[in-house]
């Protein structure tokens, strides 16, 4: 087994402490992104997730300026933005995109300022590249513990509130009629979203963080009609994409142009897109078979009624 791994992976992969950190932080980020992102897709808040990621850039650039780890910048800016979005009115369908858009515009304006100051005062750090596109191999070991603790917090929120959040996401009106605190649930969820976006930004950068948040849940929803199962599949796909991305990126040091290596985020996003595409295959295959059976002469009509799809992965 180990021999196979060594044959596939270039030397030093298992002994590098950078790889250990990347594997741990990446897995935590992927699991949390899958659990939290599944609700973002259900609730139609993917745009809010995207905005929180982009605004993380402001926090990350600010963190470079004052000399603290980017995670704290992502987190501070993300939670502040989430709070403003909640206050401005993310709970109303129309208010939602408006609130998100306003916060996004203000945040990115500040990001432009911070990045230019970064370039003036710390011209050699490559802050822009690191913040926007991530550099998981450069995450310091001291970040591992807080990253995992934050991940556990976000995961605890969506696991504890799983059933209420599921009903609110499916139908806010049903949830309200049942006496669930719809607004408080939304606020708690937004906090979990801000934390998970910060972790995803640490892994693959602020701009690409949405890919980890939305991609695996969207693929998983194609594979299973069950809410919990879809979340578990999303977590597996996310961890798979991150780990495979880390391995490929490590290997790519030996690819042309030699000695540079391709960024992890490129591989992760590419793999997520591939997973999303592959996830469409089982259903396409099934409906083709269904169609053939339906078309055969003298066959009883076994097609499900129009507009009904067979439950996948049931």
């Amino acid at each position: 087994m180990k021999a196979v791994a060594h044959a596939l992976l270039e030397p030093g992969f298992f002994s590098s402490s950078q790889v250990h950190v990347a594997v741990a932080v990446g897995a935590a980020a992927a699991v949390v992104a899958a659990a939290v992102g599944s609700f973002a897709v259900l609730r139609g808040q993917s745009f809010a997730g995207e905005a929180l990621g982009d605004i993380g850039a402001t926090g990350g650039a600010g963190a470079f300026l004052v000399g603290v780890g980017p995670l704290w910048g992502f987190l501070a800016m993300g939670s502040a933005a989430a709070a403003v979005m909640e206050l401005v009115g993310i709970q109303r369908a129309r208010g939602r995109d408006l609130a998100t858009g306003i916060v996004l515009a203000v945040g990115l304006g500040l990001a432009a300022l911070f990045f230019s100051l970064d370039a003036t005062y710390h011209p050699t750090t490559g802050a822009t590249q690191t913040i926007l596109f991530g550099s998981i191999f450069a995450v310091p070991g001291s970040t591992v513990a807080p990253a995992i603790a934050l991940g556990a917090l976000a995961l605890a929120i969506v696991v504890a509130l799983h059933r209420p959040l599921l009903l609110v996401s499916a139908s806010p009106e049903l949830a309200a009629a049942r006496g669930l605190p719809v607004r408080a649930l939304g606020a708690a969820y937004l906090l979990a979203l801000a934390v998970s976006v910060a972790l995803a930004a640490l892994t693959i950068g602020t701009i690409l963080s949405t890919a980890l948040l939305v991609g695996p849940p969207a693929a998983a929803m194609r594979l299973s009609a069950r809410p919990v199962r879809a979340m578990v599949i999303a977590a597996l796909l996310g961890v798979g994409a991150v780990w495979l991305g880390i391995a490929l990126s490590w290997d790519s040091f030996y690819w042309p142009p030699s000695g540079h290596g391709w960024p992890v985020s490129f591989f992760v996003v590419a793999l997520v897109v591939v997973f999303y595409g592959l996830a469409a295959l089982p259903r396409a295959w099934r409906s083709r078979r269904c169609g053939q059976r339906h078309g055969a002469p003298g066959q009883p009509p076994t097609m499900p009624a129009r507009g009904r799809r067979p439950a996948v992965g049931g």
């Binding site: 059933r163 009903l167 669930l180 009609a225 069950r226 809410p227 199962r229």
Partner: peptide, 16 residues
């Protein structure tokens, strides 16, 4: 949405 008819009915028991 990954939610079967039976999942929504089950939420009727204990969504809170």
């Amino acid at each position: 949405m990954p939610m079967r008819a039976r999942d929504l009915v089950a939420l009727g028991i204990d969504a809170q």
